[in-house]
Design a protein around this nucleic acid. Structure first.
Lengths: 143, 143
DNA sequence: ATACATGCAAACGGTTTGCAGAATA
DNA sequence: TATTCTGCAAACCGTTTGCATGTAT
């Protein structure tokens, strides 16, 4: 893969993001340093970085894809009030190798992967009388 | 909710489908009986039926939504070769109430729901020298 | 020199929506 | 009659793609 300044900036933006940014958020960050960058280039480079395994893509229904610098296996919770996406610790009782074994032992399928996420309410949104906040007004996803 | 022939046909089409049909497949089935029906109406009615809890919506990345007449909790496997979506039996080692309890006991989130599906290869596609079949050429999803 | 990457803008695909008219209650 | 529904077509939104130009090796 040939070096490009744009890809470097996209990668750094993902690494330095405190949350799980969308392509659009990455675009804004990169544009601050390289105003001529195009959204298409950001999409292309995010795709490349995912292919190379440098960055993880999180696909959720009815929302733009999110990107994650954390490569280790972990689950997420999608807050239904603010739309924020949060990492869950290792307490989630789901172990893929075991699930794979179990499914393959009692059904005719070969299992190669999975997708799992939870929905719920984050602590910030759960506060007393905390109003629902439309997603486009909050993008700082507390942890 | 006011009766409409179109909604009835949409509902029956989901109930009678052998697989997990997309809005488009429902559209085709309904159109066979009611040629003037519009795709918009199919979408609207599928949405209503989901709201009413009569039908389940299955959301997957990069593919149109699927609809499911089975309301009981169960998991799915998405075949990566033919694109077919298959029901998995009760052997999947994931139990939501337990997961909810465990996550809530060790993190500050309230958990209200989840999404889980597996990817892999279905028996039909696993056959010896079975070629990969593009999704638009196979829509009979064996069970 | 020759790949490969970029900016731009148009296209894509699944889904939603605004509207005037038709069907239900 | 009052409300809800429909068909139609345009809009929507995140993402991808074609193309001519620019940049890294």
């Amino acid at each position: 893969m040939k070096y490009s300044k744009q890809r470097e900036l996209v990668y750094q933006a993902v690494l330095q993001s405190a949350c799980h940014p969308t392509a659009d958020m990455i675009y804004e960050v990169v544009r601050a340093q390289e105003p001529a960058v195009s959204l298409g280039t950001v999409y292309r480079n995010l795709g490349r970085l995912v292919e190379e395994g440098l960055v993880r893509r999180i696909v959720l229904p009815n929302t733009p894809d999110r990107f994650d610098r954390r490569l280790e296996e972990h689950q997420h919770l999608l807050c239904q009030r603010c739309g924020g996406l949060f990492d869950l610790g290792p307490g989630v009782p789901f172990h893929f190798p075991q699930a794979k074994r179990q499914i393959e032992s009692c059904s005719p399928f070969t299992v190669t992967g999975y997708a799992l996420y939870f929905t719920g309410v984050c602590p910030g949104c759960a506060e007393y009388h905390s109003p629902a906040i439309p997603r486009d007004q909050i993008e700082n996803e507390r942890k």
